[in-house]
Design a protein around this nucleic acid. Sequence first.
DNA 1: TCCATTCTCTGACTCTAGTCAGAGAATCCC
DNA 2: GGGATTCTCTGACTAGAGTCAGAGAATGGA
Lengths: 299, 299
Amino acid sequence: MDAAQIEQVRRFNRTVTERVGVLHDHFLGGDRPIGAARLLWEIGEEGQDVRRLRERLGLDSGYVSRLLRSLEAEGLVTVEPQPRDRRVRTVRLTGAGRAERAVLDGRSDELAGSLLEPLNTAQRARLVEAMAQVDRLLTAATVTLEAVDPGHPHAEHCLRSYFSELRERFESGFDPVRSLLPDAGELRAPHGLFMVARLHGEPVGCAGLKLPAGAPAEIKRMWVAPEARGLGLGRRFLAELEARAAQHGRDVLRLDTNRALSAAIGLYHSCGFEEVAAFNDEPYAHHWFEKRIEGPAPA
Amino acid sequence: MDAAQIEQVRRFNRTVTERVGVLHDHFLGGDRPIGAARLLWEIGEEGQDVRRLRERLGLDSGYVSRLLRSLEAEGLVTVEPQPRDRRVRTVRLTGAGRAERAVLDGRSDELAGSLLEPLNTAQRARLVEAMAQVDRLLTAATVTLEAVDPGHPHAEHCLRSYFSELRERFESGFDPVRSLLPDAGELRAPHGLFMVARLHGEPVGCAGLKLPAGAPAEIKRMWVAPEARGLGLGRRFLAELEARAAQHGRDVLRLDTNRALSAAIGLYHSCGFEEVAAFNDEPYAHHWFEKRIEGPAPA
DNA sequence: TCCATTCTCTGACTCTAGTCAGAGAATCCC
DNA sequence: GGGATTCTCTGACTAGAGTCAGAGAATGGA
């Protein structure tokens, strides 16, 4: 990360907070405090539990309650207890609330338009293209990787999604029972580890690492949610697991995969894995890969 | 401006205000209110007049005064009357103030770093590149064009810069007296008009349009400040003047130029001007251009 | 059944950020 | 010289944004 890059990022931050940030609040707020506007926005067409709203916006419960009270007084929302659990309350937009939200929507379009408006066609196209790029990469940078227990709800969510995707994509379908599945214990210290990737707190990917005593480390169950593809997350998982394997003193990392997963196969090649002979008899595998890895950087 | 573009800009706004905007204030502020931090930043190494600070930050005089008082109490700045005009007061950083400013500087680097940190080398390069593009185009979109009287201080500033640049660049130097200069009256309604471009309130370019009765409209004295080049401002001036000439019922737009101004010549070509025989005997001109223009779009 | 926990709400605060109306000093212009 | 203007400052406000400590209802688990 060199100084010129830092400098450019700072210039960007400055321009963008001035030009977009300030306007954003101003446009969105209108006459209403922006806290209320954001809330109105986050409620959405479907309605939301108060709890979720609080979480999404990262606000104090008292504060949200007060904001809701004021929106309620204006007749923009209704708040009712959930039938299943009457402690939780659900907020829903009224007709007036929906109208108000449409106004916010329009303002947001207007702001976007005002950014493009002074530019000519070619410039607009370039700006939008560059914004998409920035958007994608900043999103990618927002994803966090964390080692969790394979029994964690996020881990289980990812594994369910993973299996159901395999079932769809493998020519032969996929039945976990027939596969050489590591049991959860194998992906838990000290025999291995399991990582999930999260974006805005939601799980969007996972990867497991087996660390069998005296044998190469092995990657299992790597999966990236469809909505998080194209963010370089697969590559990031591989780099992370490689580093962790190295920390545990392994110098070889390996994995097996099914021929239906062509994007993954491309990824393994481009990350320095080489195809080797079968090192297990996983019935769903067609390709086996291996990579020599370096020890952890000396401290 | 199509809906997909608007949509992408909105996604960008959202990602960026979340990821950069919020962090920006948080990082910059530290323990101190961000008003104070911004002020500390804007004072700069050299010191500033209170009046200018107020202008730059767009703040109320009472508010700035209070903020300065609190920075003064912390021993970060000194405020003293200017010797020339003792109503105006000048703020200067003390040693402690400079140190504090360096801390802000470091935080800003840190924020920039935190955006790049989770990315790999290739992604970083792409992000920085896209940010530069966005930065440049948003800046371009921030430039405003306005018709002003040629006697306006901003107009005069631009013209002085323009002449001094011609003096440097023309092989033969440039002496306004020898040139076929329109007097100011010719660039003032109803005989013509004069426009300046401004970025953050500072003049960064100008262009004049002569509208002689019964003759083609003529562009004069188009200039863009060095720091504003590469923003497509020349092209924007041409489009604007073309539209204005059309509004005044002209169907031909013309101009002359010196061979030393090769970038301008390229611009004229690419904007649809065609080289024609000399239509005046401006001693400093080597090329004459003309463009047929369309009438204003029907209402 | 009862105790701990979860969820929401209320009341009482704090802190920023900013506005508005003068007051007082310095300067400009006639 | 004197009135208008410019510049800064002070005091008195307001509104937004958010925190914190409970209280009270509903639920879950032993």
